[in-house]
Design a binder for these strands. Structure first.
Lengths: 342, 342
DNA sequence: TTGAAAGCGTTACCAT
DNA sequence: ATGGTAACGCTTTCAA
């Protein structure tokens, strides 16, 4: 690889002068500058990021830790993040954890080694045990760089974050079902170890209570935000014959599992059962499938997170800022139940 | 940040000794080793990747350039790549180009600056102009690291690659439609500047010719692999009233655009029109939507690409290896057209 | 306006 | 078995 030394030699100047044009700092004669730039271009010189990082004791690298790239919510968030990253000439290191705390720990250490300038993190799902949280907290503190949480927070966090109106959106979704006149309204929850899942569940409960609709335990299906679990629970539900009028599904994957089971059982949403979910599924929108939801702009959440991170890097001492994405209600008809016979 | 020097001082040894335990090389007394490891753990020491890269004149960083992360095909490929990356303790730098050659050039330069150990690349879509290809070729040569192409190749490439049976799968899909007895079979092509789009188009033409089915120009819809274009073309088609018996859509996004237009026009696949596409759409599979396709294991393509890259890094002089993913036919009923009235 | 030299945090080679 | 030191490719400070 060609180095600054080579460029200097070829251009007949010292490293210092080359460095000055590289960093656009200090005085350098217009002619020599042009000469140097020509040589650089001719040889396709690219300064070594490692050398630069080391010398400046600072990188322009951002780490992103995503729990499940298969989930379109996170790929949308990622796309918002990259948009801002590109615009600021930063380098993005991408890590996937598969919701596994061990992989997360490994990624965190790697990013610490990379001396990332900042990090965006959605913690893995298995943070039920307190010592796992403790470990996470330690690692983040040793990172020596700001962190922005996305979607899922950590208890007693000092870090900035971009979250969602979990309670409110769940309340709203449930309210829609209630106002449609459904009497028995079930829910497929997320993993209740996660605060966002509990908040959504609470939103549901609160709406039911406020409108004096009874909640039946048998219609509370304990899911985990994954397609397959939701599918199995829904399948059992349909096969049991004890089917509520309406179902509230707590995230995009849960909705998919539910829809799959419904189709298999020839249950049509909006006709035989009412349904509403949290999160949109882009493909369903595209093909105009009639699934109603409360949702959010995931790409914008990514942009916001990255912008928050940049703000924080600029101003390390400002107070913690939390951005809460509002929900948006999208009704497509599945919140109804036309066929009263079932 | 704590450095090797600090660890050495605290453990009461020299940098050299610490480095030896870090790299697990040379002799070091068991006791001192343990002592050093304890200190490292206590202080949560993470060696600087930049310093290490610089000193070793070599990184463990892989660059990935993806043209459109919103396309689930590429997010599946990415997930296969990360799987192998993780397993080999590599660091992945992720770049998105939005199919824009300028962004691609920028990413390439950045990755060169990062001195990546290797790169996985799906070139941006706009490689019609020869000087853009020339530029790409130059940049790759200056990268000083092996490249593996995924899905889309470059003319006269010397690099390894993982591609797809474009011609064959298109032939197969068309053949399915022919054998169903459809007389007028249209196609929504991809951007014919891309070789993969031309190959798919050729597969279609060949099948039509082999079975002596006439190809009507008016039923060749020139798309660009994007949802919206396919949607518009399909909409025009449905509104024109001149609707072929069957349509072959040339990628996942094209299929989605087509399906959307069909739904809007109350045209039901498998009943009012026959359809088959290249690429699956996971969500459609999950909800058991009856869309037939020829498809491939995208995650496996990612794994393969990364494994090819590792092989190439190990053995830089071996001859070029190209892996061609086979297609798989998945019939769900949309290849039929029950309603002969339309 | 330019150059020399120290320093960034590692590794690797050579002594001891 | 351990330590000293040069080197990696840059930036930055100081001197000229």
């Amino acid at each position: 690889m060609i180095t600054i030394k080579d460029i200097a030699r070829i251009a007949g100047v010292s490293k210092s002068t080359v460095s000055r044009v590289l960093t656009d700092s200090g005085y350098v004669n217009e002619d020599t500058k042009r000469k140097i730039e020509d040589v650089m271009k001719e040889y396709g010189y690219q300064p070594s990021a490692s050398a630069r990082n080391l010398s400046k004791r600072e990188t322009r690298t951002i780490g992103v830790i995503v729990p499940e790239i298969g989930n379109s919510f996170f790929s949308e968030v990622l796309s918002g993040i990259t948009e801002i990253v590109d615009r600021n000439d930063l380098t993005l290191i991408y890590c996937n954890t598969d919701n596994n705390a061990l992989k997360e720990e490994k990624a965190l250490k790697m990013l610490a080694g990379q001396r990332v300038r900042g990090m965006i993190l959605t913690p893995a799902i298995d943070y039920s045990e307190p010592n796992v949280v403790k470990k996470l907290r330690e690692l983040l503190n040793k990172l020596n760089a700001p962190v922005v949480f996305v979607d899922r927070d950590m208890e007693n966090s000092k870090w900035d974050g971009v979250f969602y109106e979990n309670f409110q959106s769940a309340y709203c979704a449930t309210e829609v079902l209630i106002k449609e006149g459904h009497q028995t309204i079930g829910i497929i929850t997320g993993d209740l170890n996660l605060k966002i899942a509990r908040d959504r569940f609470k939103g549901y409960c609160q709406a039911m209570e406020d409108y004096h609709i009874p909640v039946y335990d048998k219609h509370i299906y304990h899911g985990d935000f994954q397609t397959n679990t939701a599918y199995k629970l829904s399948k059992q539900m349909f096969e049991s014959g004890d089917i509520p009028d309406a179902i509230f599904t707590c995230n995009n994957l849960t909705s998919l599992g539910f829809i799959k089971a419904a189709r298999e059982n020839k249950i049509k949403l909006g006709r035989d059962i009412a349904a509403i979910g949290i999160d949109h599924v882009e493909v369903l929108d595209i093909i105009d499938y009639n699934f109603s939801c409360v949702t959010r702009d995931a790409v914008e959440m990514g942009r916001k997170a990255m912008n928050l991170l940049l703000d924080r890097i600029e101003n390390p001492t400002k107070e913690r800022t939390i951005s809460v994405m509002p929900y948006r209600l999208v009704l497509k008809g599945s919140e109804k139940k036309v066929n009263k016979a079932i």
